[in-house]
C-alpha cells in the first residue's frame, strides 16, 4: 500500500507537468482546432530560459518561473502571429504541417545555438525529503504540485470569470458569431496562445528542477504524451486536460513501478485507444453528433 501511495505521489508530480502542457494543447485546439505540435518545444524554451537566467543572474525560483512564463507567452504569441495566423482559412492539415515545421525550427535552432548536448539544470532549491506517513516526498515534488495546481486554479478563474475568458469560450464555440458580437478573434486567439505557452514555460522550469537535465529535444516526447493526455481528457475541455495529465502521469509511473517500464509508452497508448473506443471524445469531451 505504501509503495502504491509512494508511486501515486511520484505519478502525480509527473502528471502535473503533463497537465500543464495538456492545458495549452487543449486551449489552442479548442479555439482553432490545431494540434500545436510546437507546444512541447515551447516547454523546452521555458526550461532553457530558466537555465539561462538562473546561471547568469542567479535569480531565485520565483523570478525564474515568472520570467520564463512571460518569455514563453511572448514566444507563443509571436509564433501564432507569424506562422499560424496567415493560415487561418487554409485546410487544417496545412496548419498542422506548419506546426510541425515550427517544432523542427525551434528544436534545431536551439541545437544550433546552444549545442545538442544535455545540460545540468542549476539546482536553486536544496533538495530535502519529507517523510509523511511512510511516504517520501521531496520538497521539489511538493513545489511542482502546488505550483501546477495554483496555475490551474488561476487559469480556471481567467477562463470562467474574466471578460477575455468569456471571449475565449465564445470564439471556441462559434468564431463567426463571436466576431459579430464585437469580439476581435485574432486578439483572443493570440491571448490563448500566450496563456497556453506561459503554462508550458512554467512546466519547463519545473521539469528542469525535477529531472535536473535539459536538452533541445526534451519537448518532443512529453509534448506528444501531453497531447495524448488532452485527448484522453476530452480535447477542448480544460478540466479534462488536467485530469488527463494526472491519469497519464500516474499510469506511466505505476507501470514503471511494477517493472514494465519497457512497456510504459505502449500502456499509455493502449489506454488512449481504449478510452477513445469507449468514449470517442475522451473523458469530458462533448460529443458533437451532426444534425440531419
Amino acid at each position: 500500500m505504501d509503495v502504491f501511495l509512494q508511486q501515486l505521489v511520484n505519478g502525480l508530480s509527473l502528471g502535473s507537468i503533463y497537465a500543464l502542457l495538456a492545458l495549452g494543447y487543449t486551449m489552442v485546439y479548442g479555439i482553432i482546432k490545431l494540434i500545436n505540435f510546437a507546444h512541447g518545444d515551447i516547454y523546452m524554451i521555458g526550461a532553457f530560459w530558466g537555465y539561462y537566467i538562473i546561471n547568469t543572474y542567479h535569480v531565485d525560483f520565483f523570478v525564474a518561473l515568472v520570467s520564463a512564463m512571460v518569455v514563453t507567452a511572448i514566444l507563443g504569441m509571436v509564433i501564432e502571429f507569424l506562422a499560424y495566423r496567415p493560415l487561418r482559412k487554409a485546410p487544417r492539415i496545412t496548419a498542422l504541417i506548419t506546426a510541425i515545421g515550427v517544432s523542427y525550427f525551434l528544436e534545431n535552432g536551439m541545437s544550433l545555438l546552444f549545442g545538442a548536448n544535455t545540460r545540468d539544470f542549476p539546482q536553486i532549491i536544496t533538495h530535502k525529503t519529507l517523510t509523511f506517513m511512510g511516504i517520501e516526498i521531496s520538497n521539489i515534488q511538493v513545489l511542482i504540485l502546488c505550483t501546477s495546481i495554483f496555475l490551474m486554479i488561476v487559469l480556471q478563474i481567467i477562463v470562467k470569470k474574466t471578460k477575455m475568458g468569456i471571449a475565449m469560450r465564445a470564439v471556441a464555440i462559434d468564431p463567426d458569431a463571436a466576431e459579430l458580437m464585437g469580439i476581435n478573434s485574432n486578439h483572443v486567439i493570440s491571448f490563448t496562445f500566450g496563456l497556453g505557452s506561459a503554462l508550458a514555460g512554467a512546466a519547463g522550469v519545473l521539469i528542469g528542477l525535477y529531472y535536473n537535465s535539459i536538452d533541445p529535444m526534451m519537448g518532443m516526447v512529453p509534448g506528444i504524451k501531453a497531447f495524448v493526455a488532452a485527448v484522453v481528457g476530452g480535447i477542448g475541455s480544460i478540466p479534462g486536460a488536467a485530469i488527463g495529465g494526472f491519469v497519464i502521469g500516474t499510469l506511466e509511473t505505476l507501470i514503471q513501478a511494477v517493472g514494465l517500464s519497457a512497456y510504459k509508452d505502449a500502456a499509455v497508448y493502449i489506454v488512449l485507444i481504449l478510452i477513445l473506443i469507449v468514449l470517442p471524445t475522451g473523458l469530458l469531451g462533448k460529443s458533437a453528433k451532426e444534425k440531419v
Binding site: A95, I97, V102, N108
Partner: peptide, 21 residues
C-alpha cells in the same frame, strides 16, 4: 542541425504560400 533548420523554414514557407500543397 542547420539542415533541419533550412528544411523547417522551407516547409513553413511552402505551407504559407501554397496552403493546398
Amino acid at each position: 542541425a542547420l539542415r533541419m533548420l533550412i528544411y523547417a523554414v522551407i516547409l513553413i514557407l511552402i505551407m504559407m504560400f501554397k496552403p493546398s500543397g
